[in-house]
Amino acid sequence: MRQVTLLQIFNHPIAQKYVKRAGLAHAISASYHAFRLSHEFGVNPDLAAKAAFLHDMGHYTWYKNGEWDFNLYKENDIHAIKGAERAHKLLVRLGEDRRFAKEIALAILLHTDSYLPEADLNRSNLQRVVALADEMDEEPNGRHHYRRISEEKAYEKLKQLDGMIEKALYERKLKESV
Results as ranks from 00 to 15, higher is better:
residue 63 Y to G: 08
residue 62 W to V: 03
residue 44 N to V: 00
residue 71 N to K: 14
residue 48 A to V: 06
residue 47 L to R: 07
residue 64 K to C: 04
residue 63 Y to K: 07
residue 68 W to E: 14
residue 46 D to K: 07
residue 76 N to P: 01
residue 69 D to Y: 03
residue 63 Y to F: 08
residue 58 G to H: 05
residue 53 F to C: 07
residue 75 E to S: 10
residue 47 L to D: 07
residue 74 K to V: 02
residue 71 N to G: 15
residue 64 K to E: 15
residue 58 G to P: 14
residue 60 Y to I: 13
residue 63 Y to Q: 13
residue 45 P to L: 02
residue 62 W to A: 04
residue 54 L to V: 08
residue 69 D to R: 00
residue 66 G to C: 09
residue 66 G to F: 05
residue 76 N to S: 04
residue 51 A to R: 08
residue 45 P to H: 01
residue 50 K to H: 00
residue 53 F to G: 07
residue 54 L to R: 15
residue 70 F to A: 03
residue 75 E to R: 14
residue 73 Y to A: 00
residue 71 N to P: 04
residue 57 M to Y: 03
residue 62 W to R: 00
residue 72 L to S: 11
residue 56 D to T: 05
residue 44 N to Y: 02
residue 67 E to L: 03
residue 71 N to V: 06
residue 45 P to F: 08
residue 59 H to Y: 15
residue 63 Y to E: 15
residue 47 L to P: 07
residue 56 D to Y: 06
residue 46 D to W: 13
residue 63 Y to T: 14
residue 44 N to W: 01
residue 71 N to L: 08
residue 48 A to F: 04
residue 51 A to W: 15
residue 44 N to D: 11
residue 69 D to Q: 04
residue 71 N to R: 05
residue 76 N to R: 01
residue 50 K to A: 02
residue 52 A to P: 14
residue 60 Y to L: 13
residue 61 T to H: 13
residue 63 Y to N: 15
residue 50 K to E: 12
residue 49 A to H: 01
residue 48 A to H: 04
residue 75 E to N: 10
residue 69 D to N: 09
residue 65 N to V: 06
residue 49 A to I: 03
residue 67 E to V: 02
residue 73 Y to T: 01
residue 57 M to A: 00
residue 48 A to D: 12
residue 49 A to C: 06
residue 71 N to C: 05
residue 45 P to V: 03
residue 73 Y to S: 03
residue 51 A to D: 08
residue 66 G to S: 03
residue 51 A to G: 04
residue 53 F to R: 13
residue 73 Y to I: 06
residue 66 G to T: 03
residue 45 P to R: 02
residue 60 Y to A: 13
residue 74 K to P: 05
residue 76 N to H: 09
residue 61 T to P: 08
residue 59 H to V: 02
residue 44 N to P: 02
residue 67 E to K: 03
residue 57 M to L: 08
residue 58 G to C: 07
residue 62 W to Q: 03
residue 65 N to L: 08
residue 55 H to G: 09
